[in-house]
């Protein structure tokens, strides 16, 4: 029952053979060398495996790879090339992460938030990041970094 699926991954066209039961997370990690999507719970509860699929963040641990056939996938690996460096830089400036394991998920969730809502308020920021668990930081610097990103974007627009 192996089948060939195709999608765009970080701007590159990819073709890969999968069985229907293979998870997107495993295929990305084991067959396509994507390491930024992490295994944290395998049940959609932690956000460590977050990738962007057709413009929206999804839990790659909770999807079969076959479901992604024909889609456009972005992961942290593609960020710099896709011109999204600023989010990373501001997170870096704020020392936003400690062990860093949750960072890719947060960065992707932040990217989604800012692309959908250029001027989120504090509650909206928290709501957008509430599905990403971080055990180290207490979230404070993550939160302040995103607030700064919002300010910078607003400043640029006005």
């Amino acid at each position: 029952m192996v089948r060939e699926i195709e999608f765009t991954l970080n701007g590159y066209h990819q073709k890969v053979s999968v069985k229907p039961g293979e998870k997107l997370l495993d295929v990305l990690r084991d067959k396509l060398g994507i390491t930024s999507a992490k295994y944290g719970c395998g049940k959609g509860e932690c956000g460590a495996c977050t990738v962007n699929l057709d413009g929206k963040t999804v839990r790659s641990c909770l999807m079969y790879a076959v479901e992604a056939d024909g889609s456009v996938i972005e992961t942290l690996e593609g960020f710099q090339r896709l011109g999204k460096k600023e989010i990373q830089e501001i997170y870096q400036k704020h020392n936003a992460f400690q062990c860093g394991f949750c960072a890719p998920g947060f960065i992707l969730s932040t990217d989604e938030l800012l692309s959908q809502n250029p001027d989120p308020d504090e509650e909206e920021i928290k709501e957008a990041l509430a599905g990403n668990l971080c055990r180290c930081t207490g979230y404070k610097n993550i939160f302040s970094a995103v607030k700064e990103m919002v300010e910078i974007r607003k400043g640029r627009e006005s």
Partner: peptide, 8 residues
């Protein structure tokens, strides 16, 4: 270690 961690 921050740059390594935010770039993957």
């Amino acid at each position: 270690d921050m740059e390594e961690k935010i770039t993957g």
